[in-house]
């Protein structure tokens, strides 16, 4: 299965960058999931959890607002505040 390039960037540093299967994020107008080859899409984010799935592993980040950009090169989330949830 094609992989999605995902990067999660906070103002202070880049938290995640790599190839994953799927990312779920809290969009301003509803949660959404992104797989590889998603159509170009741009949205603001509200406070919530970003779930990153790659094979059997799952990573969860807590974010507070931000912005998601799905382009041909993958998904980029610019979060205002982001921490990896335990």
């Amino acid at each position: 299965m094609a992989k999605l390039h995902f990067s999660l960037v906070a103002p202070e540093r880049e938290l995640f960058s790599g190839e994953v299967d799927m990312v779920q994020a809290p969009g301003a107008e509803g949660d959404f999931g992104v797989l590889a080859n998603h159509a170009p899409f741009m949205t603001t984010l509200r406070e919530g959890k970003v779930t990153v799935k790659d094979g059997a592993t799952t990573k969860v980040f807590d974010i507070q607002g931000g912005f998601a950009d799905v382009g041909p090169e993958g998904l980029t989330i610019l979060a205002e505040h982001a921490v990896e949830a335990a």
């Binding site: 969009g27 301003a28 107008e29 159509a39 170009p40 899409f41 741009m42 949205t43 603001t44 912005f67 382009g71 041909p72």
Partner: peptide, 15 residues
């Protein structure tokens, strides 16, 4: 590419 915006382009740019 034709982007889809949620909410609108202007609203995103405003923030």
């Amino acid at each position: 590419a034709v982007y889809e915006y949620e909410p609108s382009e202007e609203a995103i740019l405003e923030t």
